[in-house]
Design a protein around this nucleic acid. Sequence first.
DNA 1: TAGAAACAGGACTTTTTTAGTACGATAAAG
DNA 2: CTTTATCGTACTAAAAAAGTCCTGTTTCTA
Lengths: 162, 162
Amino acid sequence: MIKLGKLTDYAIAVMGQLVHEAADSPAHDKEGAMSSSAHYLASRTGIPEPTIAKVLKMLAKGGLVTSMRGAAGGYRLAKPADQISIGEIIAVMDGPIAIVGCVEEDKEHCNMWETCPTKENWGRVNDAIKSALDGVKLQDMLSTPACGNVPDFTKDVDADCA
Amino acid sequence: MIKLGKLTDYAIAVMGQLVHEAADSPAHDKEGAMSSSAHYLASRTGIPEPTIAKVLKMLAKGGLVTSMRGAAGGYRLAKPADQISIGEIIAVMDGPIAIVGCVEEDKEHCNMWETCPTKENWGRVNDAIKSALDGVKLQDMLSTPACGNVPDFTKDVDADCA
DNA sequence: TAGAAACAGGACTTTTTTAGTACGATAAAG
DNA sequence: CTTTATCGTACTAAAAAAGTCCTGTTTCTA
């Protein structure tokens, strides 16, 4: 089954939680908006802390969240939730969206790139998938922190998942 | 990187080869069209025989090729190449196309299926991807047996790959 | 200024998935 | 009845993903 990695599911769950946090923040919309620590987010989402820390680091490196170090540091969304697409999140977590390995970036591994007539078709397929994923925004995925992915440990997480 | 398994690439290559074989067949279009053995297809595509055998078995079970046993047996396409979509092939080789595990089939593993508001969105995404893949037919991928996937052993395979 | 809280980065281990192989059984042709 | 094939399944090995941990750096607070 063509599917996303678990870390990607976690990422969407975590970012969803960050949306909640931003909305609840008193300094909402302001520059000095609150940030949430990995520890806190772990407790809210039920995802184990070491794992969620890894996910957050990846998201930070990908520019989807901004981080602040030191005590009282943490993470917050880099952009409003309706400007972050699912496609972006997947790209950061799973790498570029390309259904086949035979893609522009590593054409040197393909001994017949120049003459291969199928690459345009794969390109069209990839583009179609990409726009499908870019059309759905994080905002659309909201209301619940960890649905759509499934780990069992979400069970005891929270009640606003409905 | 979201990508297909190698076996799926092989499958497309093999089915492409079967298209060639059917076209070259004297009994082309007839009921008694020739069939190609796994051994022969392996030699034509450069894919190792045990592996290609496995692929063909999967394709046969999925109904994309028909098989005939016994001496002079082998495989042939179950449908014309322009009626076989890439999506079908992927579905047979990699299972149903569903970008998340949280899909109708195994909703019992999700403890909040009923109330989860994101499943419809994932459904839309899945559908978009599915139609992108169903829109491309095997016919469109033709002209060369093993391009678009890349294994190095395609190098010494054949000359009509251009 | 010392200590605590928190992220950064990387190395490491474990688990899961995928790929590849092998073998005994069955079926058809000559 | 021998040869050429597929069928089904089980097994092994290799690759990828997930998860964990440690060491260092930054920043706030007391």
